[in-house]
């Protein structure tokens, strides 16, 4: 029996109502990632035990999906919309401006982990194209900033790179001026929970 660390006990408690052969794996992974920010080796082990799966199977599922992470996320991510309406309005230039400002590749982050960039998919708010989402881990903020230009994206990325909080950046018109700052979408912590 491997050592029961505190981290494992926490994951176990989080998944207590989930069970094998019941289609609960996605819900389990969402819950753990929402709580801890990523899926650690311990989390994989406990999830596998709880759902009667091999750890290798759980690992295989995690790596299949774009949204699951094996490493802690950045403090704030800029999620860049890769969709057509955004791309038609210099979305590609906006991406390159963000990557250059943060000095990382897509789905990467600054060396100090303050700000990252993630590939996003169109969610049907194309009236705001081109757009990004600002996702802050600590506050579970997920707000859209639309009507971007490459210049506005650089200002946004610089502020986040330099440590500003999502709330501060979204409220600061010297950073977001001219862009359309949306409100946070619901933080669906319970999503995927089963009625088991």
């Amino acid at each position: 029996m491997p050592l029961e660390t505190e981290a494992k006990a926490q994951v176990r408690a989080l998944l207590a109502d989930l069970r094998p052969g019941h289609g609960d794996l996605l819900a389990a992974l969402h819950r753990v990632q929402h709580e801890f920010g990523y899926l650690s080796g311990d989390a994989i082990e406990v999830t596998a035990q709880q759902l009667g799966l091999f750890p290798a199977h759980v690992y295989g599922v995690i790596t299949y999906y774009a949204e699951f992470r094996l490493e802690p996320p950045a403090r704030v991510d800029i999620r860049w919309c890769s969709g057509p309406a955004c791309r038609a309005r210099n979305g590609g230039g906006i991406r390159d401006a963000i990557l250059a400002t943060l000095g990382c590749a897509m789905d990467g982050m600054t060396a100090d982990g303050r700000a990252g960039v993630r590939l996003g998919q169109c969610n049907g708010t194309c009236e705001l194209a081109p757009q990004v989402w600002v996702e802050e881990r600590a506050t579970h903020t997920n707000a859209i900033v639309g009507g971007l230009t490459a210049a506005r994206a650089v200002r946004l990325a610089r502020a986040l790179r330099d440590g500003a909080t999502a709330a501060a950046v979204l409220a600061d018109s010297t950073i977001t001026g001219g862009a359309i700052v949306g409100d946070a979408l619901p933080d669906t912590v319970t999503a995927g929970a089963t009625h088991a």
Binding site: N123, G124, T125, E127, L128, Q131, I144, G146, I180, V181, G182, D183, A184, L185
Partner: peptide
């Protein structure tokens, strides 16, 4: 809805 919130409906 998602669109209105993206446009600042909560504010």
């Amino acid at each position: 809805d998602t669109s209105s919130l993206a446009n600042g409906a909560a504010k």
